[in-house]
């Protein structure tokens, strides 16, 4: 059994419930714990990088659509200053999304070196 973001069991995603308009967006949204479990599977199948991605995804699963879209936008080249990226990392730490915060901090360092900051 797998629980959706809302906590509903994925086995409950039935046409009857759909017909009764009982299903919400969060009932078809993946749960962070599921991503953590997929990370273990990837680890066991010789891809630690894919596992790391799923762990970052488990953090992003907690953010809403706009937060995810704007995080991506901030990391595109010449979008943010070093201070803005550090502020972003701090907000991610607070989610808590420490793995994603680490990516942002590393990016800030690399962007400063390679002239990719705003």
């Amino acid at each position: 059994m797998t629980n959706a973001f809302s906590g509903r069991d994925s086995a409950d995603l039935t046409l009857d419930r759909l017909a009764r308009d009982e299903l919400e967006t969060d009932d078809v949204r993946i749960h962070p714990q599921t991503l953590a479990r997929q990370a273990e599977v990837a680890e066991r199948h010789a891809n630690p990088q894919l596992a790391a991605n799923f762990r970052r995804a488990a953090e992003l699963a907690l953010l809403d659509e706009q937060q995810v879209l704007s995080l991506y936008e901030s990391l595109r080249p010449h979008r943010a200053t070093g201070e803005e990226l550090e502020a972003l990392a701090a907000r991610l730490d607070a989610v808590p999304a420490p793995l994603c915060a680490a990516v942002v901090r590393e990016a800030a360092e690399v962007y400063a070196r390679r002239g990719l900051l705003a």
Binding site: L35, N53, F54, R56, A57, E59, L60, V68, L69, L71, Y72, L75, R76, P77, C100, V103, V104, E106, A107, V110, Y111
Partner: peptide, 11 residues
């Protein structure tokens, strides 16, 4: 780095 975040965003 933006691509790495994009990958995590989809997942």
């Amino acid at each position: 780095y933006s691509k790495a975040i994009l990958a995590a965003a989809y997942a």
